[in-house]
């Protein structure tokens, strides 16, 4: 019974922690982030299950976490504001060939990160990037300047 509450609390605690650890450029997780995730997950797992390691208890905890996740997804679909809180919003990094300096600085992005994302799509130089957007997934999408 108490495990369900622990599981729900654990879910939201993890959500908050992961959300405030700033989104790093690049959708791939680095080795360090992997370790961090395992560490945080493992600690919460140990606390959630505590001394009741029966199958009944663990099954209920998993169901509780799954249910909360689904409910959050449903609420996100209904209230876009909540989606912004949970997932963040896409941010424009470069607009019509101009850098958005404050966004770049706050998200700890360097022009090189954007250039790398552009190269992945075959854009050779930064000048050719018209728009660059930091997506919610951490990916950077770039839109090429249209040739005149």
């Amino acid at each position: 019974m108490i495990t369900i509450l622990y599981a729900v609390a654990g879910y939201f605690f993890l959500l908050l922690t992961v959300r405030v650890l700033a989104r790093r450029p690049g959708a791939q997780l680095t080795m360090f982030e992997f370790v961090l995730i395992f560490l945080m997950g493992g600690v919460i797992i140990a606390a959630t299950a505590a001394n009741d390691r029966s199958l009944t208890n663990c099954t209920c905890a998993v169901i509780a976490v799954g249910l909360v996740h689904r409910m959050v997804a449903m609420l996100k679909a209904r209230y876009p504001k909540l989606g912004a809180v949970v997932d963040g919003v896409p941010l424009v990094l470069r607009e019509r060939g101009e850098w958005k300096e404050d966004v770049m600085r706050k998200m700890r992005m360097a022009p090189e990160d954007v250039a790398a994302a552009g190269r992945a799509k075959g854009i050779r130089s930064i000048d050719q990037i018209d728009y660059a957007i930091l997506e919610r997934s951490g990916e950077i999408s770039t839109i090429r300047t249209e040739e005149k």
């Binding site: 108490i2 029966s54 009944t56 208890n57 209920c60 169901i63 509780a64 799954g66």
Partner: peptide, 18 residues
């Protein structure tokens, strides 16, 4: 999901112990 919710309710009430 209905079954899952029922399981959780049973667990909260104590039908699954504790």
């Amino acid at each position: 999901w209905t079954v899952f919710v029922l399981i959780l309710v049973c667990d909260l009430l104590g039908l699954l112990g504790r």
